[in-house]
Design a protein around this nucleic acid. Sequence first.
DNA 1: CTAAACATGTAAACGGTTACATGATTCG
DNA 2: CGAATCATGTAACCGTTTACATGTTTAG
Lengths: 175, 175
Amino acid sequence: MLSALGPASGYSLSKRFDATLGHVWNAKHSQIYPELKRLQAEGLIEVTDEGARGSKSYTITHTGRATVSHWVIDTEPAPVRRNEAALRAFLIPLVSQDDARAVLQREADFSTQRIQELEALRSTAEHAPGHFGALALELGIRQMHTIRDWAQWAIEQLDQDTNAQAAHRSHSPQH
Amino acid sequence: MLSALGPASGYSLSKRFDATLGHVWNAKHSQIYPELKRLQAEGLIEVTDEGARGSKSYTITHTGRATVSHWVIDTEPAPVRRNEAALRAFLIPLVSQDDARAVLQREADFSTQRIQELEALRSTAEHAPGHFGALALELGIRQMHTIRDWAQWAIEQLDQDTNAQAAHRSHSPQH
DNA sequence: CTAAACATGTAAACGGTTACATGATTCG
DNA sequence: CGAATCATGTAACCGTTTACATGTTTAG
């Protein structure tokens, strides 16, 4: 984050996480402060200013920037292995048809809400095309659309299964 | 998993994670064995059979099944807070245009490969419509499509930006 | 004056991964 | 007979969250 958005104190990094990066990667202040010390000890960042109320401004070093670039370029994509929405989907057959519909509808509603929040962000200056976060924000929005569409599709599937079974019963009522 | 796919030993659960649920939620045997003991102590599962080589077959109890259903129905969706693809996207402006293109292309290629793997799964009996895993698999496939499409869109964006800047330079060459 | 915001830290606990460790059975 | 597979466990470590803890400055 220091490499992308410039120098900051632990406190303002924490605010940046809440505002900008939170939907992509998050960190609490209790993780940030020790991490800043560790990065400083490794020479990847340095204290460049000390302001009011004991605040310290950290700036990324040349080595630090190189390390981040290297990570971006050389890290190979890995499949996500913690997908809570999909886990619930996996277990859906355990619950009643009505409960299943409700669960999926809640997922769809939640996504709709997130889409609105993220699209509001998109019109801010920091997320203009070419800026840090613009690509990530676009991906976030698309992923929310995907979950919403999937949930609506899944509800239709449930209903079709029900109708198909009902139709089958009415055609062969004795079996 | 015991509630969805029936009784299993720690070893076979580990195999099931590798085969079926891995792309959604994963667990290693070192996590599974202690967890089975914990769930047993809480009365959510029980040992129903002891086979060869000291293998123990665990079955979900009535309470266990109720607990899982309750979790599925009552857990509200939470925004994902660890999205490595999006994090890389966020940091893309740090690297050169060529490197950026390569990173995005790798992401697209990786997704294409995953799509093929997951679609191969879809034609298996366990993933037929209405079965455990069918909805989750569909979501997984759609999410991979989303990343692939997004990466391709992002590459186009990069190229358009370059062209626009080149055009701008050629129209006002002195500035 | 006091509540909110600014600002920084530490400790305990938890979930998960990696590595260590052991032994039984089957297949070639 | 030896390698692969079946089968179960523990220990150390790491990243993260929750809770604890403290002090300063600003705005109403």
